[in-house]
Every structure is written in structure tokens, then in C-alpha cells.
Design a protein around this nucleic acid. Structure first.
Ligand SMILES: [Mn+2]
Ligand SMILES: [Mn+2]
Ligand SMILES: [Mn+2]
Ligand SMILES: [Mn+2]
Lengths: 247, 247
DNA sequence: ACCTGAAGTTAGCCTCTCCTAACTTTTAAG
DNA sequence: CTTAAAAGTTAGGAGAGGCTAACTTCAGGT
């Protein structure tokens, strides 16, 4: 009865049927590998216009042949669209699963930082493993405990319980900030422990107020807390800020 | 230098060399399956004099053929002693790993109950998955946070950081308590959700003060908080108590 | 001492995820 | 427009952990 009603509702609302199809608790559970593939496709898709199997292979630290094999399987499961030699994309169901895993990951990162005293550079690796094994109850418990946070310690948005990506402030790469302008660091787009460690030692962390004092081909000069640093472009490109004028 | 000193120390103290050999961080990580096999061998060994492959198969929900195969592998790795058609036992290294996993499991159970509002019957299943993926840092963080607890919510002892089993009070099966004697529930030796759920609804939980008011072949009659219950033997056998006279 | 059922083993097969090596298709530079 | 490098595919195989079915060994009851 409920099922019939749902179909009618979907028809009326013109929603894709697939949204209903996915339910973490009653669907056959995916493997950790499969979850990581879907999550990585989603993340690559946010940055690049198209997702190459080579990128996927690099991110997941497997060989391209393995990616081809997995794409066939995920296509079979209705989680990606894909034809040989063409680009990959998530279906609605595939995207829902990717967002579910991403929500686990980012909630866990924040939880580890806030409640178990993990430092910025330690949270990612632990969350990468835990994200696949925590239950929906665990997810709900830490989300509740933290007051349903919208962003993780890297400034990455945490998908909501309905799997929407919350709005983030309008961000600019710090490399694009003009000289003498003020800004607040809002997102650091790397998981590299060494880089995160260094940035946090310089106090270049989320919510730090900075001033861009100069730019040359060596990098970008930044003032934070009366200290000045020269940040090489290779690192600065990970740092995204909100301009002070927008605040 | 440290290594040489360690060898000398071991020689002097007559400790088994194998204790030093195992180090979770630099040894090739075992699979989740292998960890569960070792843990289950340890737990069976605490109860039975000898560990049968059949019991192991039942507990791990695999077929006996699979157990035989795994025993060969674990023997190869130096974690169990075993000859075809003979009983299995853990080596010192195998036992150290079993205790490490058991420590994770029981710390997690207590953590879930205390900090994430899990009920008695929900903790085991979640801990069963998490125990294999948390880092030593996670273990240390929750142990610290909880003040290095010695027993989990079922009354099971939590192995210390040095992998010693902490002393438990002298326990008696509630079925062996004489009529009109008082006692305190100290351990409930089942992970069955339904039974745990029922017991906790009757307030027959860890640290509950009870009085045995009668016994017949239907079961054992117990008073707790002015309420009287008839506990069938099939359930009562899981409940272990400390006699009031010992307190 | 024998017999029989329970316990344990073996062989052969499956699925999963990854690999290498050789091949094909696409793409972009000249 | 050609062609070589990059990207992607295919075939074949490894190893982990399970399974079934047929077999062997063991242990207890008569
Ligand atoms: Mn992961
Ligand atoms: Mn993050
Ligand atoms: Mn387990
Ligand atoms: Mn327990």
C-alpha cells in the first residue's frame, strides 16, 4: 500500500524513481571499494567537468584496468552511466550513495577533531576507514551531538540528512586575492598531512583572518596574527577564502 | 640498541620472545576475518577446556571447511598451534592480537553506551564492525576519555593496554544462588539483543541488587525493586552475580 | 572390540578486487 | 591530415575467504 502510494506521489511530483530505490538499510550493502569509487567519482565531478578513469585510478590508488572492471559492475548495479571509452557519471541512486558516504566521512572528521582531540592532519585517514562501517544510528548520534553541523574541519560542506549539499559562502582562491585585501580562510582543499600540519602551525587554519601583502612568481605573501609568510603557489592553491568585503 | 636491550631483558625475565614480536603498527595487518577467528578462539578457550572447530564455525557463522582452511593460514602465520584432527590453541602472538581486538571491542561497547546513547542491546553489533578499523590513537582517546575503565556494559573485563585481563569479583551463576540470598548482577554473558532488551526492561542489569526468592524446574524466581519475576533457566544461565556476603 | 554418528578434512568451485601485459581507441600537436 | 602519446580495454591470473559434497578420522555406547 505504502509502495503504491509512493509511486503515485512520484508520478505527481515528477521526481526520478531512483530516489526511492536506494535505502541503505534494505538494499544489499555495497563493498567498501564500491563506496569509495562512487564517492571519488562524485568528488572529481565537483571539480572537473568530466571524470576520467585515469583520475579515478590515481585517487583510489589502483590501476586503470581495475577501474574499467569496477565501472562495468557499477553500471550493472545501476549506479553509474558508462559506455566503453566514454566518460563516467553517477546515476541518481549512485549519487545518493556517494553523498551518504561523504556525509559519514565529514561528520566523522568533525567528530574526531571535536570530541577525540584529533588534529587537523589525522582526521582524514581515520574517517576514510570508519565511513564504511558506522551504522545510520552512529551517524545520527554524532550529528545530533554536534548540533547538525554544516561543514567539516577542512571547510568541506557536510551533506544533510536529506543528502543536500549545504550552501557555502562565496569563495575565492587565495591566489586570486588582490594585494592589501583582507580575507578569512574558509576551506583548505587537500588531505595531505604534511601540508595541513604546516598550515596549522602557521595558524593558517579555517576562520583565520589574513591579509594578502604581496604576490610574485615565488608565491603569495600573507600576514596572519602579525606574522608574515611566503606561501608557495603549490600550497596556496589549496587555500580558499571569503573576501572581507563580503562579510 | 633498543632492540638489543629488549632481547637481553627478555632473556633475564624468561618471558616468551613472541610478546615482543607483535606490534600492531608495523606488522602486516591481519584481515577482519583473521582477527575475528583469533578473538573467537580466545573467548571459547575461556569457557571450554578445548576449542573445537565446530564451535568456532558456529560462532563465526561459517562452515567447518572454512575453519580448517583458516587454521592452516593462521598456523602458517605463527598465530595458532594446530595439527589436523587435533585441537587449536593460540600462540602468545596470537593471543596478544586476540586481546588487542577484544580491548577494542569492549572499549567501543562502553563508549557507545556512555557517549552516544546506545542501549545495551545495540552496542555489540556496532562494536563488532568498528573493532577492526579503529586506530591505536582512537583506542587511546576513548580509553583516556572514559578514565581507563576495567569492564564493559555486559560486565566483561576490558584487557588493559598491556593486554592483561583485569581481576573481576568472584562470580556465581545466578542459578547457583540459594533461596533468600541477596546478590548483585555483575555480568551477563550473552550478546542476544532480545534477551538483553528483556533483561534491561525488567531492570535486571549490571549492578542491580536482586534476591532469589525461589527455584523450581520452570526456572528461578527473582525479586528486584519490589518486583518478582520467574526467569527461565535458559536465560538465567547467562546471568552471573556477586553474592551479598562477599560485599 | 566394534560400530556409528559427529567432527574434521579435502577437492573443486565461486566471487571479489586487484594486478600485468598486450591491445585498441581517442586526442591533440605539428 | 597524420601520427604518436595518452587513455582505456581485454585477457588471463593471483590470493583471500567463502561454499558444497565426498571422504576420513575419532570417540562413545554397547
Ligand atoms: Mn573510504
Ligand atoms: Mn574533510
Ligand atoms: Mn568483528
Ligand atoms: Mn560485551
Amino acid at each position: 500500500m505504502y509502495i503504491i502510494l509512493s509511486f503515485v506521489l512520484l508520478y505527481i511530483l515528477h521526481l526520478p524513481m531512483s530516489i526511492l530505490n536506494y535505502n541503505r538499510s534494505n538494499n544489499p550493502r555495497l563493498s567498501e571499494s564500491q563506496e569509495d569509487y562512487l564517492k571519488e567519482i562524485f568528488k572529481l565531478n565537483e571539480v572537473n567537468t568530466t571524470v576520467s578513469l585515469q583520475d579515478l585510478a590515481d585517487r583510489l590508488k589502483v590501476k586503470p584496468a581495475s577501474v574499467t572492471g569496477m565501472m562495468k559492475k557499477l553500471k550493472q548495479l545501476g549506479l553509474v552511466t558508462y559506455e566503453p571509452y566514454k566518460e563516467v557519471a553517477l546515476t541518481d541512486v549512485g549519487e545518493a550513495i556517494a553523498l551518504e558516504v561523504l556525509r559519514h566521512h565529514r561528520l566523522l572528521e568533525l567528530y574526531l577533531a571535536r570530541h577525540l582531540n584529533y588534529s587537523w592532519d589525522e582526521i582524514h585517514e581515520e574517517a576514510e576507514r570508519l565511513e564504511h562501517v558506522i551504522s545510520e544510528k552512529f551517524e545520527a548520534a554524532i550529528a545530533e551531538l554536534m548540533g547538525h553541523p554544516t561543514h567539516d574541519p577542512h571547510g568541506d560542506p557536510i551533506p544533510t540528512i536529506d543528502l543536500e549539499i549545504p550552501d557555502s559562502p562565496n569563495l575565492t582562491a587565495v591566489t586570486a586575492v588582490k594585494e592589501n585585501n583582507h580575507a578569512i580562510i574558509r576551506r583548505v582543499m587537500t588531505q595531505d598531512s604534511d601540508i595541513l600540519n604546516m598550515l596549522s602551525r602557521l595558524d593558517l587554519t579555517i576562520h583565520s583572518k589574513i591579509t594578502v601583502t604581496g604576490k610574485d612568481n615565488a608565491g603569495i605573501r600573507i600576514r596572519v596574527n602579525e606574522n608574515q609568510y611566503l606561501l608557495p603557489h603549490s600550497i596556496a592553491r589549496f587555500v580558499w577564502v571569503e573576501l572581507a568585503s563580503n562579510i
